[in-house]
């Protein structure tokens, strides 16, 4: 009786999980496997791949190229490092913008809260390309920003922001800021303000209260938002293409070039693996921090 019941519930579980599992297998696991395999194959002369094992794709990036067909070029590592640096800068700027704002919004009356959350999601209603071209119009030498600054006599000649790292970071922050705001806002909104009162009452200064109470309790949102912003900014190629041009090459653009321009699929795949590896390292630390917190809660429930 109980066995058949268990069988039935297993069947139901399989039925419920089936579509999702199938979808992920076809559209996530399979393409990813193709990329992993390709990254160890030789590039075909006119695109495509030769089915021979070939580890020099990674050698080209990391330094063990054979020196005849493939050359080690530190430029790839340099581009890679620049991408990580710019992604981290984007994360930090988003964090600095969103953390105080989340506290400010969480203290507004309810109808204003709803309005501000609507404003945060508003950019999603317009095309990404359109919004980024608007930034081109703002940042270019004869653009809006320079016109205003010159009009105010703050600068004597236009600042050329276009095709700089700064322009790319502005663009990345601009498109990714909602992904930082929403998780932080969720954790700030949950924060019980009487804990802040209690901390002050117990003799903690404002800084101590922040470090010992507010920060630890909002950390899950901060970490979550940072991960969600870091991953797309590391692999992004649209923003660097439009605002960084050829001067600020990021790893995402490089991968795009390898697949579409140079038609060196295995090398593009190898670069992608590098990006994924980096993201996995960051995710590892995140999941470890998260599971530690969950283990704590689990212990609390069982106790």
């Amino acid at each position: 009786m109980s066995t058949s019941k268990r069988m039935r519930s297993r069947f139901e579980l399989a039925l419920l999980l089936g579509p999702t599992s199938l979808f992920l297998a076809v559209f996530f696991i399979a393409p990813l496997s193709i990329m992993v395999v390709y990254s160890f194959l030789e590039a075909g002369l006119y695109g495509g791949v030769e089915w021979t094992f070939y580890h020099y794709n990674f050698g080209r990036i990391l330094g063990w190229a054979d020196g005849t067909h493939e050359y080690f070029n530190p430029a790839y590592l340099w581009i890679f490092w620049r991408s990580v640096r710019m992604a981290l800068t984007t994360v930090v700027i988003c964090l600095v913008l969103c953390y105080p704002t989340a506290f400010w919004v969480s203290r507004l009356p309810d109808r204003w809260k709803t309005f501000f959350l609507f404003l945060i999601t508003l950019p999603f209603f317009a095309s990404l390309i359109v919004r980024l071209f608007a930034w081109v119009l703002i940042l270019r030498p004869s653009g809006f920003l320079n016109t205003v600054l010159e009009g105010l006599h703050l600068i004597s000649e236009p600042i050329d922001l276009m095709y700089t790292e700064a322009a790319v970071i502005i663009g990345l922050v601009y498109i990714l800021v909602p992904f930082m705001f929403l998780p932080i806002y969720a954790s700030v909104e949950k924060l019980n303000m009487s804990l802040v009162d209690a901390s002050g009452d117990l003799g903690a200064t404002k800084f101590q209260t922040f470090r010992r109470i507010i920060l630890p309790l909002t950390l899950p949102g901060v970490i979550g938002g940072s991960i969600i912003v870091f991953i797309p900014s590391l692999g992004n190629f649209v923003v660097p293409d439009l605002l960084g041009g050829a001067k600020v090459l990021m790893i995402g653009s490089l991968i795009e070039q390898q697949f579409l321009g140079a038609r060196n699929w295995p090398f593009g795949a190898a670069l992608s693996m590098m990006v994924m590896g980096t993201v996995l390292v960051f995710l590892f630390f995140y999941v470890r921090a998260l599971s530690r917190a969950e283990a704590l809660e689990e212990g609390a429930k069982n106790g």
Binding site: S194, L195, D197, A198, I213, P216, L217
Partner: peptide, 12 residues
Amino acid sequence: NTVFQNYALFPH
């Protein structure tokens, strides 16, 4: 010092 209404114990 204060004992708060819903105790306000630090959950973490």
